[in-house]
Design a protein around this nucleic acid. Sequence first.
DNA 1: TTACTATATGGTAATTTTGCCATATAAATT
DNA 2: AATTTATATGGCAAAATTACCATATAGTAA
Lengths: 98, 98
Amino acid sequence: MKKEILDKYKNRSEVIKALAHPARLFMLDYLSDGEKCVCKFTEELGLDQSTVSKHLAVLKNSGLVAFEKRGLNVYYRLKCPCILNIFDCIESVNKPEK
Amino acid sequence: MKKEILDKYKNRSEVIKALAHPARLFMLDYLSDGEKCVCKFTEELGLDQSTVSKHLAVLKNSGLVAFEKRGLNVYYRLKCPCILNIFDCIESVNKPEK
DNA sequence: TTACTATATGGTAATTTTGCCATATAAATT
DNA sequence: AATTTATATGGCAAAATTACCATATAGTAA
């Protein structure tokens, strides 16, 4: 792929890749009403704690969420709540019949 | 992952996965001013024609674009132009320093 | 019909992503 | 200090994605 196109679209694609998993999409929705600790995600998702931790790390590394450790718990929160607004458009996309 | 969460977020994640590649993000931007035929994407992207065709198939299968064959060419167009509006938010996401 | 052009598809190897297990780390509690 | 609790990390195998090459297909032109 031509370098100038790659340069222009790679950053976008990295953020979007971070969004591209059902568990991580749930996480963002789940954070819409405020911060949550890791154990809450684990409880809701029914995934292994290490798996949840890795999904949160993906969101964190992309810049979509921030975190804060308080006592034994780590609390995650949305860094860019505007992300919640993109889902109406996403939901409006309909798969073609084939 | 719990079934009800998977059910709710899988459709979203499928559309977002279709977005999650620099070449496909370029394609959507490139379609913002109207339909283009496959050869134009190939020319702009500098990727193999078969690779371009497969990227377009991903966009097509997700419902993000539609196509029409006219003569020897196949013209693709945006089916959901609202998708162009999500990129401002995506661009506003900043990677954490580490 | 034959040849040519634009696009799609099958195959495959390299890379990336995912999810679990085991374990490490850090803070709180005893 | 030793134990417990919450979270993160390393390792690995399975699955998904990517890009190319070779080839198939469909439309056009000769």
